[in-house]
Simulated scan of single mutants.
Amino acid sequence: MSNHEPFYAAKCVFRHHQHEPNDGKKYVYEDRIILIHADSMDDAIEKAEKEANEYADLGTEYLEYVNVFHLFDYILHHGSEVYSETRSSDLEPEEYIDHFHDSGAEHCKKYT
Rank of each mutant, 00 (worst) to 15 (best):
D73A: 15
K11R: 02
A52N: 06
D39A: 09
T112P: 02
G59L: 04
T112G: 04
T60F: 02
D98L: 13
Y83N: 04
Y29E: 01
K11H: 01
G79S: 13
E46P: 01
G59E: 07
I33N: 03
A44L: 00
Y27P: 02
D39W: 04
V82I: 14
H37K: 15
D73F: 10
D102R: 12
E30D: 06
L71A: 13
I75E: 15
A105G: 13
L76G: 14
H19V: 08
F14I: 01
D31E: 12
K109P: 08
H78Q: 14
T86K: 13
E85C: 14
V68Y: 02
D43P: 02
E5N: 11
D31Q: 05
S84H: 12
T112S: 07
Y65P: 04
L35C: 01
L58Q: 14
T112F: 10
E20M: 12
N67V: 05
K47M: 06
I34W: 04
D57I: 07
E106K: 08
D98N: 14
M41R: 09
L91V: 15
A56C: 05
N3H: 08
F14S: 01
D102F: 10
A48Q: 05
Y8N: 00
H77M: 08
E51A: 13
I34P: 03
D73P: 07
G59W: 03
S40M: 00
I36N: 00
H37R: 14
L91T: 13
L91S: 14
D31H: 09
E49P: 05
L91G: 15
T86W: 12
H78L: 13
Y96R: 12
D42M: 06
L71Y: 14
L58P: 02
E106H: 08
T60P: 03
N3F: 01
I33D: 00
L71V: 15
D39F: 04
Y83P: 05
H17P: 01
V82M: 14
Y62L: 01
D39K: 09
Y111C: 08
K47R: 09
N22K: 01
Y55A: 01
A56Y: 06
K50V: 05
D73H: 15
N22A: 03
S89M: 08
Y8Q: 03
Y55N: 01
V66W: 01
E20K: 11
S89H: 08
E94Y: 07
F14W: 00
I97V: 12
H4L: 11
E95H: 13
K110T: 11
F14V: 00
T112R: 10
F7N: 03
H17I: 07
Y111N: 10
A38G: 05
E5A: 09
M41C: 01
E51I: 09
L76Y: 10
H37N: 14
I33H: 03
V28E: 04
K47C: 03
V68M: 01
Q18A: 14
S89G: 07
Y62H: 04
F72V: 13
V68R: 00
Q18G: 12
F100R: 13
Y65N: 11
Y55P: 03
E64M: 04
Y83T: 02
V13Q: 07
E85Y: 13
H17T: 08
H4V: 06
I97P: 02
Y83D: 00
A44S: 04
L71N: 15
V28T: 07
A10L: 05
E64H: 07
D98I: 15
G59C: 05
E81R: 12
S2E: 11
R32Q: 11
D31A: 04
E54S: 09
P21E: 06
Y29W: 09
A48N: 04
A9R: 00
R87Y: 14
H16T: 09
